[in-house]
Design a protein around this nucleic acid. Structure first.
Lengths: 220, 220
DNA sequence: TAGATTGTTAATCGATTAACAATC
DNA sequence: TAGATTGTTAATCGATTAACAATC
C-alpha cells in the first residue's frame, strides 16, 4: 500500500477507465499492449497514457510495452480495490434498490453490510441478502459494526440530518446520489457525487448545441 | 435559440451546477447575487464565474451583480431545458425503473414517451404512466413516434445490438448507464455516460489515499 | 458623485502533447 | 545488433486566476 504524491484529479478520473479497458483485454486473452495500441482503443494519446502510468512507477518495459495482466493488477492496487470497506445504504427506494442489486461492491473495494429506511413498508423486506433496517437503529448498527462509508439514496431534504448522525458516528466517506451538497456542512469528509440531473442536463445541452449547429449550416 | 462558439468542456460541465444553485437561491427568495457571493457558496473563484458567464453574453450589471431569476433562466436556455426531446428507456429492471420514476425529465428538456424490455414478466406492466413495451416493437414505435433520444439501462452485452437498431432508426442521442462504449461503433452520435462503477472506484481511491496519508503521518 | 461589481485583458498555472535518449 | 517502445524532459496548449478599466 503506497501513497502516491500529487496525483492530479484528471489522472485519478482516468484510472477507472484504464482499469475497465485492461479488464476487457484480459478477458479476451490479450497479454501484451503498447501505449500506442491503448491510445487507439481508448482515445487518449499514447503520450498521455505513458505520462499517466508513470505517476505510479514504471510498469512497462522498453521495446515491449505493458503486460496487460500486471498493469490491470497494478491499477487495481492503485485504486485500492483490494480493500474491503464496509458500506451501508441509506434509502431502499427504487434507486437504492437498483444500486444495492446492480453494483458489484466486492470488485470495487467495498462490501455492503446494511440497508436502512424509515418507511415501515420497507423495513423488514430483503434486498440481496440484506434485511432493510429501521433508520432509528442506525446508531446501534454503526456502534456494533465497523462502518466505513455510507451511500445516500434518499431525498435531498433528508440528507443533512442523516449525515449529521453518521458524521457523529465517525462515518465520513459518502457516495452521494442526492442533490444535497454535503461539503456545506463538513470539511473533513470524502464525497463522491452522482448527479444524474446534471448528467441529463449536459445531454440536453449537447443535443441542443448539435441541432443549432446544423440549423446554422443549413442557413448558409 | 443561439449557437455559442467554442464553449469548453469544463464550462459546460459547470453549467448544471450553476443552474441548481441559482434555483435554490430563487426558492429562498434571493433576487440579486454577485460573483463574489456565488463564489463563497459554490467554491469556484469569482473570476471564474464571471469568465464562465461571459462566454454566453453579459448577464450582469456593473456595480450591482446578477439578477438571480434572469441568470437562472438564461442558463436554463443555454442548457436547452426549454426543449421537449422525446426519450425512450431501454430496460425496465431496477435501474431503469429508478431512472423512470426518479427523474424529472420535463424539467431537464426531455419527456419520457416509452419503456422497452424483452422480459415477458415485465412487458405490459406499468411504470409511471407508461406501459412496458416488447423490445421487438421498437421499430414500430420509433416509426410511429418521433424519438430523439434513448436511455440504456440494460446489461452491457445487450447494448451493441439495440444501439445498431436505434441508429438505423435515426435515434442517435444516448444516455448510457451501461458500461458499453458506444463510441466504438458510431461517430455521429451524442453520448452522455453514467459510469457508476467508475464513480465507486474513485471513491475507493480517495478513501485509500486519505488512509495512507494518515498512516504516513503517524509514522513520523 | 462614490462605491461596487462587472466585463475583459493579461499573467499564471497546470495539463497535454511532442520529442528523444534510454533500454529492452 | 536493429527495431520497438518506454520513461522522461521540453514545448505547447488551454484553463484558471489576477488585475483593472468600464460603468451601473
Amino acid at each position: 500500500m503506497h501513497k502516491y504524491e500529487n496525483i492530479s484529479d484528471p489522472v485519478i478520473k482516468r484510472l477507472p477507465r484504464y482499469y475497465r479497458f485492461l479488464g476487457e483485454l484480459l478477458e479476451k486473452g490479450v497479454t501484451r499492449i503498447s501505449s500506442k495500441q491503448l491510445s487507439d482503443k481508448m482515445g487518449f494519446t499514447a503520450s498521455q497514457i505513458r505520462q499517466d502510468l508513470n505517476c505510479f512507477g514504471g510498469f512497462g518495459q522498453q521495446g515491449y510495452g505493458y503486460s496487460v495482466e500486471s498493469l490491470y493488477n497494478e491499477i487495481g492496487n492503485i485504486l485500492g480495490l483490494d480493500h474491503n470497506y464496509k458500506a451501508i445504504l441509506i434509502g431502499a427506494g427504487n434507486l437504492g434498490k437498483a444500486v444495492a442489486i446492480h453494483m458489484s461492491f466486492e470488485k470495487r473495494g467495498f462490501s455492503l453490510i446494511g440497508i436502512f429506511d424509515n418507511d415501515p413498508a420497507k423495513i423488514g423486506t430483503t434486498i440481496r441478502d440484506l434485511t432493510v433496517t429501521d433508520l432509528d437503529d442506525l446508531e446501534k448498527f454503526c456502534t456494533e459494526n465497523k462502518t466505513d462509508a455510507a451511500i445516500f439514496c434518499v431525498p435531498k431534504t433528508a440528507v443533512a440530518a442523516i449525515a449529521a448522525r453518521l458524521h457523529a458516528l465517525g462515518v465520513k466517506n459518502y457516495w452521494n446520489f442526492s442533490h444535497y451538497d454535503l461539503t456545506i456542512d463538513f470539511d473533513d469528509i470524502i464525497v463522491e457525487n452522482v448527479h444524474l440531473n446534471d448528467s441529463l442536463m449536459i445531454l440536453c445541452y449537447r443535443i441542443s448545441d448539435a441541432n443549432d449547429a446544423q440549423h446554422l449550416s443549413e442557413d448558409q
